[in-house]
Design a protein around this nucleic acid. Structure first.
Lengths: 386, 386
DNA sequence: TCGGCTTCGGTAAACCTTTTCCCAAATATT
DNA sequence: AATATTTGGGAAAAGGTTTACCGAAGCCGA
């Protein structure tokens, strides 16, 4: 500091020495902005400005620089850029379980939205384990993610302090602490679930069971509450015996179905907190010799890709994970880039998709048959989507 | 220069200015190794040594430093560490499509193995698009991944030069250029596929179709070749009409099944290049009113989790993606950490898993029935694994 | 032809950490 | 008690980039 800046202009020799030193190092396969500058016969500042599309660089020179960059296949060192600019251009995404097909679809959407806006993503999978969650958060902080979307549908509050304390913008699903820098994606579970319940009620179902997600998670409660509200709206009583806790896995679905089958009276329809659970229930029904939908109607939740291919294709409630992902990125960007007034709430729609696992309950069917209306045996809405 | 502790010994006034500037910045929520050093009353070097468990730091001092680190919730800046140490501790993983359930399982395994050895992962999903592949590779280089596993089961050669030229260790599946720094994971497709073919042949199948993967991919050819060899070993002729190209998606499976169904003569069994294809075929069979396995036997490949839950559960050939992932990390580590003699070849086993989509072909079944052996109608090996 | 203005390009500091080198202090040895 | 040896810790450079600041060159009008 404080040296007369241009003193050296008149004394080239002293400056030459370090330059040579640089060259010798560079020859050993080390490529950086200096290499480019040297080959293009410009200063590193010019190279940097060219790369960052600074308009003060003259076109001819820019072209020359780009040519050298191409020729060398030069790519700037992201770490160095992030270090000096203070921007990592990294968004974090924390999910429950990467092996649940819902999440890869979400990840894909998140990545596409992020890349579109010049960000990259850092994925963390908690597997419902607080230890792993802690690790994920640590990594997000260490790598200086500029924002983190917590899509685990539930998070231990104390853990997120690590992030909140560092003023990392966060986005949650459903619920989260009300602080500045924290956005919420509010899923309107009620709309889709009510459609599902009404669909079942219209078919004549009165004995409707519900398999929840893990009740530690807030989203599981939200979905259950939406179900209970919808059921009551239809004037049906909710029998607590038919509310069974699952864990959002296929195995959990099987276990839940077993519990239901063990009861004295069977429900005629089951709604599930997610599609994987529904697939488990469907499988158990198959094993138990129940025909779907004749003996048991099943509705899932999420509308993951594979539900189109189950046998029979699953009626489910769509929650667009692309919307969810896009909104999450939007919310994060709004915080990071300080768009004037960042909304805190981003609503997400849900929507019933009728496929072929829902039909008349057995009793009704017989009744209809008796009335000579056998053509009706085709469930309504068959393959309305597929 | 100008670090707090000894600044005053030399030239207090001139050096004092930056110190104040630093502090003022630090107060505004900026935390780094200097903050820790200051609070612990040591130099930054000591803090760094403590963090890196350098044994020359005396225990008492280390304890004091760790306490401050804890109290501040300090986490070192990964970018800066990577920049100076030249080690990003990042491993890249490039997959075909994250929404194909095989890959999340692979990713999970890869991440677990990486984290176990102190690495983190960078995921790229190509969606079979060379443009995206290019982007993935660029990101891997930019972020300075220390090694990259290319699990797309096929890569455009010129693209990988970007990585090879930079001496980034690579690991491929099946096939890859024979250069130093490139390891191969050799999957023994033949073993599992032969088991599958023999299983079908033993049941009496002679008319066996095969739905390949996208033939641009080398792994598709490998699997097809393994099938053809196995078929010939069983003394069955391969009818080229029954080799149909799929694309590793469920939709591709449906399309392939449609092509097969349109033929004059139907095969009695179909082997598929992956499970998603098999699920598509299974679905098409269901739509066409064919019973599985009575009218059509189906065998998949990969043994993804969901195959346990298809209706009926899918007979498939297991390729342990955890093994694959673990071996990939091992191979990369061997290169990165210069273990004495890094093996180039890592063999991966495949294994038939018999579930319930394979049974006697229709003709045989009737024949057996005629022979009064109706008890045999249960296919052999039923749920031998589930 | 010269002075002032514009425009373009170079220099060095800053970002945060690791690591080498070196010095000082503490302990051991004669 | 004085020197040799060990140990612990501080200073500073390096790593690759961005950017503020400043100098130089070119251009125009007078």
């Amino acid at each position: 500091m404080g040296y007369p800046v241009n003193a050296f202009f008149t004394a080239p020799m002293t400056e030459h020495t370090p330059k040579i030193k640089r060259n010798s190092k560079r020859n050993s396969a080390r490529m950086n902005i200096h290499t480019v500058a040297q080959l293009a016969n410009v200063s590193i500042a010019t190279v940097s400005r060219t790369i960052n599309h600074n308009p003060t660089v003259n076109l001819k020179m820019a072209k020359r620089v780009w040519e050298v960059i191409r020729e060398l296949n030069y790519l700037p060192n992201t770490q160095a850029r992030a270090l000096v600019s203070g921007r990592s251009r990294l968004l974090g995404l924390i999910v429950s379980e990467i092996t649940n097909p819902f999440f890869p679809e979400l990840i894909q959407g998140f990545e596409d939205a992020a890349v579109e806006h010049g960000y990259e993503i850092l994925i963390g999978s908690t597997n419902y384990d607080p230890e792993r969650m802690k690790g994920c958060i640590r990594r997000m902080v260490e790598r200086k993610a500029e924002g983190v979307a917590v899509m685990t549908f539930g998070i231990e509050e104390p853990l997120l302090d690590q992030l909140a304390d560092r003023h990392v913008p966060l986005v949650f699903v459903d619920v989260g602490p009300d602080r500045p820098g924290i956005s919420l994606l509010r899923v309107d579970y009620h709309h889709g679930i009510r459609q599902g319940v009404q669909h079942l009620a219209a078919l004549g179902h009165r004995d409707i069971a519900f398999v929840t997600g893990p009740l530690r998670l807030h989203s599981a409660h939200s979905r259950l509450a939406a179900f209970q509200r919808a059921i009551q709206e239809c004037g049906i009583a909710v029998d607590p015996k038919w509310i069974v806790e699952g864990d959002h896995t296929m195995e959990g679905g099987i276990a839940a179905a077993e519990k239901l089958l063990a009861g004295a009276k069977l429900p005629t329809a089951v709604m599930c907190s997610n599609d994987m659970t529904a697939i488990g229930v469907l499988h158990k029904a198959y094993r138990a010799g129940l025909r779907v939908p004749d003996d048991l109607s099943i509705i899932g939740f999420d509308n993951i890709h594979i539900t189109q291919m189950t046998i029979p294709p699953l009626t489910t409630i769509q929650m667009s994970c692309f919307d969810l992902a896009r909104e999450a990125v939007m919310a994060l960007r709004a915080q990071v880039e300080q768009t004037p007034a960042p909304k805190r709430d981003y609503p997400i729609e849900t929507q019933l998709v009728v496929r072929e696992t829902t039909g008349f309950p057995r009793g009704t069917m017989l009744q209809l048959r008796k009335e000579g209306d056998s053509a009706k045996s085709d469930p309504p809405g068959k393959s309305s989507t597929v």
